[in-house]
Every structure is written in C-alpha cells, then in structure tokens.
Nucleic acid binder design. Structure first.
Length: 629
DNA sequence: GCCGTTTTCGGCCCGACTGTTTTCAGTCG
C-alpha cells in the first residue's frame, strides 16, 4: 500500500475511534477530512515531508496538529496517538460502523450497555434476541439490522464506473419516458466520473411525484403494459458518435425498498447496487442536480461561499439568508435554482464540470478553458487485431475506426513475450506491417499507423530490438508481467521505457485492474518528470477496468505539462465505447485539449511522432502517405 | 481539529426518512 493510502487509513481509523468514544463531532470530521486530503494527493506525502513539512498545512483542512502526525508517520511508520486511541476500544468495534443503519450512537450504546464489540457478537445477539427491548431498537430496526448483516455477508466492493453507468442510463431512460417527467438525470459520483461507484443517484423533475416513485420502486414493472420500459430501453445506451454498439443492459430488478417517501426513494437492486431517487419540482432541478452530484466536500465549499455572501444554498435553490431555516418552505423566492449555471453564476463562479467537483481547488483556481471532452477525440492509438488477441481482422478494425470518425487508427498488436495474447514474433510483425500498409490503401480515408504494444520487461528493456521498433510508426510500451515489483524497481523499469528514444506512449503505466489487482506503484513524479523531458506521452487506458493512469496521476502530469494519450485498448468493436470513461478520468485530472494527443489533427500528431523518433535510427523508407482529409 | 473580508474564540452545511415515541433522535447522503 502506498504511504498516502496507509496514512489516510490511519486518520480514518482515528476518526472512527473518536466518534465511538463520543468526541466532538467536528473533531471527528476534521480527521476524516485530513484522510481525504491525503488520499487525493497526487504526490507521495513522504516526498512532501522530505522537501518541506511546512507545505502540509498549506492544504486546506490540514492544521498544525495533523501535520505533526503526518511527519511522525513518515519518520517512524506509525502515529502514537493512533495507537493510544485504538487502545480505548475493542478492535472489532469500528466494523460495526459499516453496518447500514448503525451509527456511532447506537454502536456506542451496544458496546457499553450490552457488550457487543464485533460483527460476530452483533450477529449472535440478534439471533438470540438479546437486543429486543433496548431503547430505540424496536422490531423493525432489529429486522433491518438482520437484513443489513445478511447483505454485508454477500455484497461485494464498489461497482466500477463502466458497470454502473449503463444501468443508470437504463433507469434514467425508463423514468424520462414517464408522463409528466420534465427532466431526469443521474447524479452523484457517477456523474463525477469516479472510477468506482457506491450507489446510483437518480434525479427527476416533475410536478407529479407519486407515479415516478412507484415506477422507481418497481423499475417500470407497473408501468402501463410494459410500454414505458420497453420504449426507453431502445434509447438507453448512447453509443459514442451516435452509434450504439451491443445491446443496452436490461433494467435491474428491485430486491428491497429501503425507503420510500414523497420525494425520496431508495432501493436495493438485484445486481447488488443501491439506487436512490430524488424527485423535485422542475424549478429546482438545477439546485437539486448540483446538490446530488456533490461531492459532499464541493457542496460544503459552495455553501460556505453562499453564507459568506449572505445567502443560503440547499437542494431547493440559492436563497437570501434571512436567518431562518428552510426558506423554500416559507415562500422565499430563490436567487437561483433552475440551472446549475445560474447558481454558480450567483456565487461568482463559472459552471464547474462535474468531474472537477472534488474540492481540489476548482472553486479557487482557474479551470482549463479547453478541458478535454469526448467530442475532441479524433484518433485511437492503441488497438489490437486478431493477429494477437483482438476479435477483429485488421480491415474490420480500420473500418470500425473510420466509422467512428477518426482521422487515424494505430494498430498496436502485442509483442512476442505476451504469449497468452498471441504476441507477434519479429517475423510476424514485419509481415503485419505490410498488411497494415495494404489495408490502409484499400480502406482509404483514414490513416493507419503501423505500431506495436511492446512489453516492457521487468528490467525495463523492450520486447523487440530497436531495429524492428524503428520500422514502426508508433510504439506503445506497456508493462504486462511482473506487476508486483518493488516500487523502486518499477520506477527504474518505467523510467527506462519512458526514456527509450523509440517509445511514444507508455500504455497503462501501472497495470492495475480496478477491484482486481493494485499493479505497480512507481514514483509517479519521477515518471512524469522523465516523460516531460523525453516527450513521451502517458496513457489513460480508457477501459473501465483499468483507468490507468488514474485521475490523481493525470492531474500531476497535467501540472507538469506532460502529453497524455486517451486510448481504448481496443480488442473488440464495443471497446471504442470505453472512451467516455477515459475522458471522464482525463477531466478529473484537469486535462486540457492541448495536452491530449488524441485531440490533435493528423498533421500535429504525425509531427509529434516523427519529432520523438527524429533522433533515432529510423531509416526505413515508408510508403508515401495521403494527406488527411 | 480547523479556521478567519466582523473572528485567535466560537463557530463549524442542510434536509429527508425511519422508527420510535407522542415530539424527536439517529442515520444517511
């Protein structure tokens, strides 16, 4: 685990103990906030401490006391106060806070009054009926707790972005098709493009809430016939560049209604996710969308800003602050509420793209005016054919790329060491290059770059000789094996590849699989510095299982002015649709169009590729290229 | 514990829903 992750966990743990021992809730929150700050740091916190410990308190939410603990951790590997806190409670107690429906007050009561100090003890006590009759633990709460424990036992981790968005879109489409629905959208971390999602947040604007709530509770099963649900499914999945590939996911089924009020419904779905619906008046849609998109920290920033300007912000709008609560219930007219833009404007801010709303400076620093967007992407530089482990023939791949409107597609099949992926021997690669030239001429209207996704060996060497690499138009170098290397070795390995004169892009630099494997943990700052120096691009692999580079690393690379490639690592036709996840990750890293090589026109792209290889041994004559259309 | 365009002390975002209790505490987002 990285230093940042370990330290963030310690602050979270301290917050848990403080909460369970009844400390000042603001002190508890202060610890949680420091944990979040550390977790979202792009740079290794140890590096900051080594450079200048005083920098720590420059981060909002980190004060003198926390800075001291951070330094202590970097120097000694632990925080003494953490140990002292842990000694005050049974080790199993914090786990109880993770049980849905159990909060600090109840856990504390269970611990002190009936000696329940672990999940196992809670389970046993529930089964034995020992909790019956305790204050505020009526039969319904008892039943809910049993259900929560059962759910915890079989539920898994957070859901990946690419799994959640199609489901959310199906639900939104179903709701949007209901009569009287003015607007429907998903919000929350899904809209912010986080790599994993805790639950789905859906928002609907209507003046007739009851049927919407009902439809949500049943996922459209009660809609007249199945008209609404069926019709909506056709438009549920919006394919990239207006082409829907594959079939849209069916609507999930509801396994339990967790809460059902006039404006709020929560359900558990058969895919294990929880989905929350909020229903608002059309006039408050913007305020509600802003509120439910979050993040929580971003919202707090906005509210503080509102207060400083004599206003009050809630999910119903931005109101003049008259000192009384709930202005919306007293007929107070909002200053702004209908759109997000209007609210930001009244707060003196530009509209902030959802991906940036993480309290990482978006309210105080200038946002890139040319933040990269899906429409900006004009080429794909990492794609496989059935020559290695792709499903498409060379021609099918090129035609698929052309149909997406790309000016260039790079064919980058695996190199020889990726035996499991049918990597190409040098001889096969030479034949492949010829085939690529032939298909480019045959299909026409799109540039086809002859490339390779070359394995970076554990020692940093590449899988083909330089003479062969020099015959290619583009080289993507990626780590595939030895992904549990020591960080120092991983750093050396990647640095060697970054600095190699024939490498244009480092593919999925860490090799991580979200919810699968952690991948390499190199000194990312060193990689970024070398990439800048060598004019090598770092990839955001857009596949939702990878998203590698991750958002925080992208931000660091952007700050250093490093070029970024957003690529789908295409193996099958549908993989082009992964692009949106890569773009969301890029936006979370504040990537401007100018630093994204996929947004460049063909001339600029090829100029960059040539510049990188100009000093190399490239001597092979290449067939003349058409000008881009 | 953190923070300051009235503040180095005294605040710290705001509301919905549930279950229990009978006016509200606790949890959640």
């Amino acid at each position: 685990m990285s230093t940042n992750a370990a330290l963030a966990q310690i602050f979270e743990s301290m917050a848990d103990v403080l909460e369970l021992t009844g400390a000042n809730p603001f002190r508890v929150n202060a610890h949680r906030r420091v944990a979040r700050v550390i977790e979202s740091l792009a740079e290794d916190v140890a590096a900051i401490v080594r450079r200048s410990p005083a920098e720590l308190t420059a981060f909002e939410g980190v004060g003198e006391a926390s800075a001291k603990k951070i330094v202590e951790f970097v120097e000694t590997g632990s925080v003494a106060e953490h140990g002292e806190l842990l000694a005050q409670i049974p080790p199993g107690l914090p786990q109880l806070l993770r049980v849905p429906g159990l909060g600090p007050k109840t856990v504390r009561m269970l611990w002190q009054d009936v000696s329940i100090d672990s999940l196992a003890a809670l389970t046993a006590a529930l089964e034995a009926g020992r909790l019956d009759g305790l204050p505020r633990l009526g039969p319904k709460t008892i039943a809910n707790l049993k259900e929560s424990l059962a759910f915890m036992a079989q539920s898994s981790e957070r859901v990946r972005l690419g799994q959640a968005i199609p489901v959310a879109e199906a639900i939104v489409a179903m709701l949007a098709a209901l009569p009287g629905v003015v607007q429907a959208a998903f919000a929350g971390s899904l809209r912010r493009g986080r790599e994993t999602i805790g639950d789905l947040d859906v928002l609907v604007a209507t003046t007739n809430a009851a049927p919407v709530a009902k439809a949500f509770e049943t996922m459209g099963a009660t809609i007249d016939g199945s008209k609404g649900a069926q019709e909506s499914r056709g438009s549920a999945k919006r394919g990239f560049r207006s082409e829907a590939h594959g079939s849209p996911p069916p609507l999930p089924k509801v396994t339990k209604v967790l809460a059902s009020g006039e404006t709020k419904v929560s359900v558990r779905l058969d895919n294990g996710m929880q989905a929350d619906l909020r229903i608002v008046e059309p006039s408050a849609f913007g305020a509600a969308l802003l509120y439910f998109t979050g993040s929580k920290e971003h919202n707090v920033r906005l509210r503080e800003r509102a207060i400083a300007q004599g206003m009050r912000l809630n999910e119903y709008g931005l109101f003049p602050d008259d000192g009384e609560a709930a202005p919306q219930d007293r007929g107070v007219k909002p200053v702004a509420s209908k759109t997000e833009e209007s609210i930001y404007k009244k707060l003196g801010l530009p509209w902030i793209p959802p991906e940036l709303r993480e309290d990482r400076g978006e309210c105080t620093q200038p946002i890139p005016a040319d933040l990269v967007s899906l429409e900006d992407i004009r080429c794909e530089l990492h794609a496989h054919t059935n020559a290695s482990d792709g499903s498409m023939s060379l021609e099918e791949l090129v035609r698929a790329a052309k149909s997406r409107g790309f000016h260039t597609i790079a064919v980058t099949d695996h190199s020889r060491s990726s035996v499991q992926a049918n990597g190409l021997s040098p001889e096969r690669l030479i034949e492949h290059i010829k085939a690529i030239r032939a298909v480019e001429a045959k299909v026409g209207g799109i540039r086809v770059l002859a490339g390779s996704e070359v394995d970076i060996h554990a020692d940093g060497s590449l899988d083909y000789d330089d003479d062969l690499l020099a015959q290619l138009d583009i080289v993507v170098a990626s780590p595939h094996a030895s992904l549990r290397q020591e960080p120092s070795k991983a750093t050396e390995r990647l640095l060697a590849a970054v600095r190699h004169p024939l490498v244009n892009i480092i593919g999925h630099p860490t090799g991580r699989i979200i919810n699968g494997r952690p991948g390499l943990e190199p000194d990312i700052a060193a990689i970024i510095a070398a990439a800048k120096e060598s004019n090598t691009a770092l990839e955001i692999n857009a596949h939702h299982m990878r998203l590698d580079l991750r958002d925080s690393h992208v931000r660091l690379a952007v700050d250093a002015g490093v070029n970024i490639a957003i690529d789908c690592d295409v193996h099958a036709p549908d993989d082009f649709d992964q692009l949106r996840y890569g773009v969301m990750t890029a936006r979370r890293g504040w990537l401007p169009r100018s630093l994204c090589v996929n947004t460049w026109d063909a001339e600029q792209l090829e100029g960059w590729l040539r510049a990188k290889r100009g000093a190399s041994t490239v001597t092979t004559a290449k067939p003349a290229r058409r000008k881009p259309k």
